[in-house]
């Protein structure tokens, strides 16, 4: 146990969350290693989003512990603190700051002082500009850098949001359905992008799109009714009878 904990980047143990008696998460345990990429699948209501909420501090679990990098107790921190620890989150529905330009979106996300007076008197340094240019490159938005985020296409918004996550320089990225509503070409590009990101950081991807999950080619965890039903490679999972019963077969 302790060995597991010290080895892990993210360590969820026995997490339970209930809303008015309904258990959204039921003794969920999950372990993500540094540098790992994990795909999480599960039918609607399996608890995927709630799990993300617990990790990012939006929801407090009724029971269980959530540790980051073996020593940070996530259950006692708020969203901002957790974000500053190095956990980035991408929402299911792309959320970017629509009345800011792409550039400003990235500037706001860039790792920097988050204090009120720090931001009041801050100015953008040359190295920050460089970092932003680099990020724009990574997410294919260089040409759109001065566009208002509101005017981006759906796919571009998804990328911008991923770019913002990268700007935070997190150790762990939580990505909720990144390819929903994307074209096939965009989906492939996104898979590529995530793999590239995974070279330096751990990634947890929640996704419905099986082609995409297959594309990623990583370990898959199946959630069902708030706890882990099975995990392993996609092929392994696909042959698991219970998984077929609750999810694939239906």
């Amino acid at each position: 146990m302790t060995l597991e904990l010290s080895r892990s980047l993210l360590y969820l143990d026995d997490i339970t969350v209930s809303f008015d008696g309904f258990k959204a998460l039921n003794a969920l345990s999950l372990l993500i290693e540094p540098g790992e990429m994990r795909a999480i699948i599960g039918p609607n209501g399996a608890g995927k989003t709630t799990m993300m909420d617990v990790i990012t501090g939006k929801t407090r679990p009724d029971e269980g512990s959530a540790m980051f990098a073996g020593r940070h107790d996530l259950t006692s921190m708020d969203e901002a603190r957790i974000a500053n620890l190095g956990i980035g989150r991408k929402f299911q529905k792309p959320t970017v700051f629509e009345s800011h330009t792409v550039w400003d979106n990235l500037l706001l996300a860039l790792k920097d002082s988050r204090g009120v007076f720090g931001t009041l008197f801050s100015s953008t340094s040359a190295s920050q500009k460089e970092a932003i240019e680099e990020l724009l490159e990574t997410v294919h938005l260089t040409d759109a850098s001065m566009a208002m985020a509101a005017n981006l296409s759906h796919g571009q918004k998804q990328w911008l949001e991923i770019g913002m996550l990268l700007a935070q320089d997190p150790q762990l990225l939580l990505v909720d359905e990144p390819v929903a509503g994307m074209t096939d070409a965009e989906t492939a590009q996104t898979a590529q992008l995530l793999r590239k990101i995974n070279e330096t950081r751990s990634v947890v991807v929640v996704e419905h799109d099986m082609t995409f999950v297959r594309d990623l080619d990583v370990k898959v965890t199946v959630l069902h009714e708030g706890s882990v039903l099975a995990d392993g490679s996609l092929d392994h999972i696909s042959s698991n009878e219970r998984v077929i019963e609750v999810y694939l077969g239906r």
Binding site: T56, A80, N84, F91, F97, S99
Partner: peptide, 10 residues
């Protein structure tokens, strides 16, 4: 525009 997003940015 998006308070919770801002929070998740730290």
């Amino acid at each position: 525009d998006a308070e919770s997003r801002t929070r998740f940015l730290g």
